[in-house]
Each structure stands twice: as structure tokens, then as C-alpha cells.
């Protein structure tokens, strides 16, 4: 990653603390929401959104992806595409099936 000078590291440490606090708060939020009476679809979207935000924070700041090289980004995008294919095509096949279960 770029910028390994003392000042930038010290600046990073402040970011880490902020990210940590956000993660903790989001964890509490997502658990709290799960006790609310909401429909499954709503609960699903809230939970996945919160998890995605938390995941992005970890990826971007703890794993320094935000300042990472293009090559790594492309690698991860490819992986994400492969993962989405693996996730969704079997699912779609469930809805397009002749005969019942």
C-alpha cells in the first residue's frame, strides 16, 4: 500500500479506531433490528445491507483495499462475478424446473 510514512500510519490508526467503533455500532444495530417485528423480506434486506457495509469497511480499511492496486481490484471483481454466478444460477434453476419437489 502507498504511504508508509510515520505520519500516515498514525493517521491510519485513527481511521482504524473509527472503523472499529462503526463496526461495533452496526453489529448492535443489526441485532436490535432483528428483534423488531418486520417482515422477512425487510429483515433480509436490512441484515444483508448492514453486513455488506460492515464487510466493505473491513475490506477497505483493515485490508487496505481502498488504496490497493488495480490488479487486486480486478481479481476481486472477477471472483465476485464468479461467486454471483455460482449463487444465482442454481437459484434461478429452482424456479425454472419442470415438475414439483
Amino acid at each position: 500500500m502507498a504511504g508508509n510514512s510515520k505520519e500516515s500510519i498514525e493517521h491510519h490508526i485513527k481511521i482504524y479506531i473509527n472503523v472499529f467503533i462503526s463496526l461495533a455500532v452496526l453489529t448492535v444495530v443489526t441485532v436490535a433490528v432483528s428483534y423488531l417485528e418486520v417482515s422477512f423480506i425487510e429483515a433480509f434486506f436490512i441484515a444483508i445491507t448492514v453486513a455488506t457495509i460492515k464487510g466493505s469497511l473491513v475490506l477497505c480499511y483493515f485490508m487496505h483495499l481502498i488504496s490497493e492496486r488495480q490488479a487486486i481490484i480486478w481479481l476481486l471483481v472477477t471472483t465476485l462475478v464468479a461467486f454471483l454466478i455460482l449463487l444465482f444460477i442454481p437459484l434461478i434453476s429452482l424456479t425454472d424446473q419442470v415438475g414439483g419437489w
Partner: peptide, 14 residues
């Protein structure tokens, strides 16, 4: 940690 962040809601909360 990242994996757990996704495991936690889909297993425990949904």
C-alpha cells in the same frame, strides 16, 4: 472476520 460478518446475520438473525 469478514466471513463471520456475513455468517452472523444469515445464520442467527434471519
Amino acid at each position: 472476520d469478514l466471513v463471520w460478518i456475513f455468517l452472523f446475520p444469515i445464520l442467527y438473525l434471519l
